[in-house]
């Protein structure tokens, strides 16, 4: 960012820092140990910011270790640094903190597994509905289960296909995107193109309107 550069040269001598945030838990990397996804965070940091990883997870002199602990830190292991950080707490508090951390990690893991399962089974339906003899609207439902924001997707669809696209409530609860015109095939391709990384192809299905089938 340009603003950071100019600030560095500022006359006041105050530093403006550019902060790196963990790609897994979004916290500054030094707080990853409290997030519950410590292991993943560590891997991410190693890949993206090896220098920072070395500082935080290796056994170089950690930031505030008590002097008695420092001599013990010789091998490179994440646990040791964390232990050293913990050493400033009382034994009892340490135990509790550890238990808490384990619980948190387990919780995060199960939550993630659940989420993945849900995503794998969530289908996106693209449905063509006959509105008038030769007029159609296309309803897209199920995108929200993949973490997409319907309002924004609708806007994008409207722009892409140059038609009206809106988020409408459906009687069964929930919302879907209604696009004017018969665009089911185009939308199918577009969804896979733009959101292919979040929505697997097998999970997208086109449904023909039954009425039309009966007529034809």
């Amino acid at each position: 960012m340009a603003e950071t550069e100019t600030a560095d040269a500022g006359s006041s001598g105050l530093m403006v820092r550019n902060v790196v945030y963990c790609g897994v838990c979004t916290l500054p990397p030094e707080y990853c140990e409290f997030g519950g996804t410590t292991k993943k965070c560590e891997e991410w940091l190693q890949q993206h910011h090896p220098d920072m990883h070395a500082k935080l997870y290796s056994a170089g002199p950690p930031v505030y270790p008590p002097p008695t602990q420092r001599s013990q830190l010789t091998t490179v292991a994440i646990t040791e640094v964390l232990e050293a950080n913990m050493a400033s707490l009382s034994v009892d508090a340490q135990k509790r903190a550890e238990k808490d951390a384990q619980k948190k990690a387990a919780k995060a893991a199960t939550q993630e597994a659940k989420e993945q399962e849900r995503k794998a089974s969530a289908m996106v339906y693209i449905k063509r509905i006959e509105r008038n003899k030769r007029k159609y609207v296309t309803a897209v439902s199920g995108l929200e289960a993949h973490g997409l924001e319907l309002k924004k997707v609708a806007k994008d669809m409207g722009k892409k296909f140059a038609t009206g696209a809106s988020v409408t409530k459906i009687p069964s609860g929930g919302e879907e995107i209604t696009v004017q015109g018969d665009l089911s095939d185009d939308i199918f391709d577009w969804v896979l193109d733009t959101y292919g990384d979040v929505v697997p192809e097998d999970n997208v299905e086109c449904i023909e309107d039954k009425k039309k089938k009966g007529a034809g």
Binding site: M15, R17, P28, Y31, F34, L89, A93
Partner: peptide, 25 residues
């Protein structure tokens, strides 16, 4: 907090000990 992280020295600040971090977070 992102702003605080960018301009850390511009705000009045105090510090908590390590044991309190997990409760705060």
């Amino acid at each position: 907090l992102t702003l605080v992280h960018r301009y850390p020295s511009c705000f009045p600040r105090i510090r908590i000990d390590r044991g309190a971090i997990r409760f705060v977070l």
